[in-house]
């Protein structure tokens, strides 16, 4: 299976170099020089993952992410030049699944993409926690009988937590299993996703009953 990647980046040299490196990693890379071009291409063709530079001329990278997220759960990786927490969190809040900062290496980016596209473990039975019913086979989540729309990353995060049978899952384990991080770094990526997940599955996201924070170590879903 060939993974189709759309690379949205205005700097032509970076675009070419990344495109070469990702092709070397076995991806089919298409390039877009602006947000407008990217959205047009995504309308016309199917892609497996989109890499979006946040600083684009014209349509801003954040707007591209927001538009794409409103359309569906296409995996999005944000590429930021600034490593400021604000930019990164804004990108994740807009709906990105992961982020990388420049200078980024093609192989690191490839690992990120592969982690994002990893299929859920086969043969898992449906899991019930609280009033949530998770069906890993179909990738569906129902809350009190009603369908909840989760992105692929949110789904895998929920599944990791629900599958632990009430045990604590540390932040590092989550980063490793969901995002494929083997360098345990920024857990803000996780914080933002937990926030997003709570907004969708909790009755009151400010007072979570389901996805509980275990101070100092991680999260757990009581079984």
């Amino acid at each position: 299976m060939c993974v189709r990647v759309l690379l949205v980046e205005d700097d032509e040299r970076i675009r070419q170099a990344l495109s070469l490196a990702l092709s070397d990693e076995g991806f089919a890379v298409d390039e877009a020089g602006s947000g407008e071009v990217a959205l047009r291409r995504l309308d016309a063709e199917p892609f497996d993952v989109v890499l979006v530079d946040l600083t684009l001329p014209g349509l801003d990278g954040l707007d591209v992410v927001r538009t794409l997220r409103a359309r569906g759960d296409l995996p999005i990786i944000v590429v930021t030049a600034r490593a400021d927490a604000r930019d990164m969190i804004a990108g994740l809040e807009a709906g990105a699944d992961d982020y990388v900062t420049k200078p980024l290496m093609g192989d690191v980016l490839a690992a990120r993409v592969r982690a994002l596209l990893r299929r859920r473990g086969p043969g898992r039975d449906a899991v019930r926690v609280g009033d949530l019913e998770i069906r890993p086979q179909e990738g569906l989540v129902h809350r009190a009988g009603e369908r909840v729309h989760l992105t692929r990353t949110e789904f895998r995060l929920l599944l990791e937590l629900a599958g632990a049978g009430g045990r604590i899952v540390t932040r590092e384990q989550l980063l490793h299993k969901v995002w494929g991080y083997d360098y345990f770094g920024d857990t803000r990526l996780l914080d933002v996703h937990i926030r997003r997940l709570r907004r969708k599955v909790e009755a009151n996201p400010d007072h979570p009953q389901l996805v509980l924070t275990v101070r100092g170590s991680g999260y757990r879903i009581p079984s």
Partner: peptide, 20 residues
């Protein structure tokens, strides 16, 4: 450092392709 990031991104990736 920030301004160096863009050319560096190009360089490390082109370098990786060459190294392969």
């Amino acid at each position: 450092s920030h301004e160096l990031r863009s050319p560096l991104t190009t360089m490390v990736n082109a370098g990786a392709v060459l190294r392969r």
